[in-house]
Every structure is written in structure tokens, then in C-alpha cells.
Design a protein around this nucleic acid. Sequence first.
DNA 1: TGACTTTATCGTATATTCACGATATACGTT
DNA 2: AACGTATATCGTGAATATACGATAAAGTCA
Lengths: 111, 111
Amino acid sequence: MANNKKEIFCSNSQKIADFAKAISHPARIEILRILAEKNSCICGEIVLEIPLAQSTVSQHLKELKSAGLISGIIEGPRSCYCLNVEGIAEMSVIFGEFFSLIKIENIKCNC
Amino acid sequence: MANNKKEIFCSNSQKIADFAKAISHPARIEILRILAEKNSCICGEIVLEIPLAQSTVSQHLKELKSAGLISGIIEGPRSCYCLNVEGIAEMSVIFGEFFSLIKIENIKCNC
DNA sequence: TGACTTTATCGTATATTCACGATATACGTT
DNA sequence: AACGTATATCGTGAATATACGATAAAGTCA
């Protein structure tokens, strides 16, 4: 059988999982880091800093964009990317809620 | 070509990505939720609450365990699972650091 | 001992991810 | 107009993830 049972779970779980998937590759983590470091729109230097092929970096950028974590505008021959403040805030809130939920000190555990 | 360039990135990025991958499936999110809700070791009721085949749930449990987010002991015919407080705390800290890094209000962005 | 229960593991099929090179696109420059 | 530059997209292949049924393992109970 195949896989695609993800939609049977509650939407909050799906949202967390989707954000997590978006940042589940070190290249994408470092792209976000680079964008935060520059603290401004940058046009393409990302490819120079990530040791992957240009097409691969472009793919990672696309994933981050579709997850809502970055925004990008294509300006003819060059593109401008920056962090999407709203998306990152949403991820931060959702993760925060989830972490505080599971961070309960389960003292009853005797494993 | 194949994929396995993940080890060329810095270890912090890899660690974040690994934790993110561990929670990048809604079933695993809900397993963590169930464990937190019960607030104790539970033996197998997870399979009843997750609408997936028993073998699939077992696989998800294995992934969470290898990521250090849960601990489990096999007690003969049944297993006991609970949240791994240390692992969750580590994930929480690492994510918190990363989020605060990228949450900078990048007012210079003009995208 | 033999049946039953519970869970992990194996084998397998399909889907997705990751990575690359090649190409297309779109603009600027000469 | 022709060339160059920067970036996205396409096509492809390998690796991994997801899901299931079947089976194995290990204990309990009649």
C-alpha cells in the first residue's frame, strides 16, 4: 500500500508536522539562518553560501516558500528572498504550544 | 545522484533538522500528545487511538524512540512507553534558540 | 503443553525527498 | 540583435519514508 493517511489526523497535528517537515533538512535551516543574519532581502547569495547545486538550493527555497516561512519575489533575472515574519511567528506559536503541552514532568513514569 | 549531503552542514543545523524530522508526521505528533495526556507509562493503547495498522504505529514509535523523544521498555508481550523528558527538553531548547534567532523583525525587507 | 495476546520485525509496494545536470526564462548589457 | 547573468523548472535517478500484511518472539492463561 501507499502512504497518504496524513489527512486523517487533526488539523493542528498536521500543521505542526508540515512546519516540522519544512525545517527537517539542514540546508533549509541554514538558509533561514542566512536570511536572519542579513536581516534584509538578499538576492541570490544564498546559492554561494550553501554547498549544493543551484537547482537544489532553488528547490529548498521553494519548499520554504510554500511552507510560508520565507517570501520571495522574482525580479527578472534575479530573485529577492527574505524571512516571512508572519509565517515564522505562526510556527513559533504552534510549536510553543505543543512543546508546553508535552513538556509536562511525567513523574509517574517508571520506565 | 543520490542524497546524503546532510553531513556537510553544521551539527547544530543537523540536530534541529533531525528533531524536526522526528515530529514531521501527524501520527507521531499525536503519539506524543497521547503520552503527555496520560502522563504515565502506557502499554499499547496507542495502537487503539491511532488509526493506522499496528505495525505502522510500531514503526512510528521506533522513530520517536531513536530520536530520543520517548523511552520504551519491552516487557515480554507488552511494551511500556513514556515521554523522554530530557529529549523533549533538549528539543525545546534547541528550537527555542533557533526560533529566537530567526524571529528578528526584519524591517528592512521590502519584498 | 497449547492456545492466546501483545508487540516488534520482516518483506514489500508505493510515494516522496533529495540531488544533479540540462534547459528555459527573463532581464541587462554591449 | 546577440550575448551574458541569474534563477526557476524539467527530467531523472537514488535514497528514504510510509503503510500494510505476515510472521516471529515472548509472555500469560487455561
